[in-house]
Design a protein around this nucleic acid. Structure first.
Ligand SMILES: [Mn+2]
Ligand SMILES: [Mn+2]
Ligand SMILES: [Mn+2]
Ligand SMILES: [Mn+2]
Lengths: 224, 224
DNA sequence: AGTAATTTTTAGATATACCTAAAAATAAAT
DNA sequence: ATTTATTTTTAGGTATATCTAAAAATTACT
């Protein structure tokens, strides 16, 4: 039916998806243009083309919304992007912050079979190295909770997505415990009396974390 | 210095490399056009552009030759293509004959680090799943010998690249021994008296192969 | 050598995805 | 309610990589 999408079309759909907070809100032309690093004039051109393919809804001066097909395409690209990021970090030992640009290229490879096999090879991950959820083939993804580890159930596993304090003493301390953005955290136990935690970092031996420190560590975990 | 090559430019350079038998001979416009599935007019246009970038030598009506820079670029693309083919077969369980089209896309991903890491992840392979040699970072590759397993030293390992006989009884027999195009063969021992062999197929238990059968099995192995 | 066949190049167009500059519509401010 | 500022669209172009049709050069054949 529809010709395969070009790299540019895929990037626009993905940008619209992100800017519309998961495909709900309407996106204005200037933000879209900025998001794909182009001019508003070019964005208008592209949005018209996407509208003619029934991927987005568009009315002059009124913004752009994803239609069902466009949302599906966007989620497919996001799925590929995040799966490749997992591959790069888990299999090729890239760091958390080195993978985005490579994934921006890999996300456009066209082969449903490749993605199926990659997903299997990676053990069907539900979260990427940045703590963002990976859509399944149907475009569904688990809800992701982002919260301080001082407020999360014992037994939970997640990825450090932020440290809410740039005190260099704190950062040095985290360094000594091996906690950094992208670390995998497993909450082993909590002492109710003082709120201190025992956590495993990147599958290592349990580490003691005081509540003061725990308050600053934000992790991302998928519900269920 | 030079702007990154486009996908089209990379494909032309690769085609010129293959058509010129490894960058030596000169390539005529019609074959080049056919090889990249385009018209001779388009090939002429592209060859002019590549010549202006000093990647190929070109004189009207006299054909095209790879220059040093063009050959280097071609070999980089071929290296990437073959490494990705190994990845697809070894890690994602694709069949020998399913990987080419996907590798045609993956070969254009731009990231020297990615290829370095991929190479390491794969254990620095020297041959792709089709028995073709993988150039190293400097563009050098091992010589590949293609010969019948009845004429190859005990201890050698290689990949089945052809079966020189389409007798259905032979093919059925090979099937029962698990030998097919792309199989990894390890020659365990040879009985001098009748030329029969004991070989391991895809790292399995040793199999008995008579000389009559062995004569028909062509494998590809890297010299060293 | 002269003609015919083939190969290759040029000329002129098309589609994609950009751009700048100007016009039009919408939103904000007085 | 005007005026002003911002956003968005249109108009007109550019670069890449294609195409077809026609011209030119080379090669092959009597
Ligand atoms: Mn990313
Ligand atoms: Mn990510
Ligand atoms: Mn191939
Ligand atoms: Mn190959």
């Amino acid at each position: 039916m529809s010709s395969p999408l070009s790299l540019a079309e895929e990037n626009y759909l993905k940008a619209i998806y992100h800017l519309s907070e998961n495909g709900n809100a309407s996106v204005n032309t200037n933000s879209l243009a900025e998001s794909v690093s182009t001019t508003p004039a070019s964005a208008t051109d592209m949005v018209k083309k996407l509208a003619s393919k029934n991927l987005v809804g568009y009315q002059k001066y009124k913004g752009t919304t994803l239609l069902a097909d466009g949302k599906r395409e966007a989620l497919t690209v996001i799925r590929k992007h995040r799966l490749w990021e997992v591959f790069l970090v888990e299999k090729l030992s890239f760091k958390w912050d080195e993978v985005h640009d490579i994934a921006e290229q890999l996300e456009h490879i066209k082969s449903p079979m490749l993605i199926k096999r990659l997903d299997q090879f990676l053990g069907y991950p539900t979260m990427d190295p940045h703590g963002d959820p990976i859509p399944n083939e149907a475009g569904e993804m688990k809800d992701i909770i982002k919260a301080s580890i001082s407020k999360i159930d014992v037994g939970s596993k997640g990825i450090v997505v932020a440290v809410e304090n740039d005190d260099s003493l704190l950062l040095q301390h985290l360094n000594s415990v091996g906690i950094k953005i992208g670390s995998k955290i497993h909450i082993i136990s909590r002492t109710d009396y003082d709120g201190s935690l025992s956590v495993s970092v990147d599958s290592g031996v349990p580490q003691f974390i005081s509540q003061t420190v725990a308050d600053n560590i934000m992790i991302s975990l998928s519900e269920n």
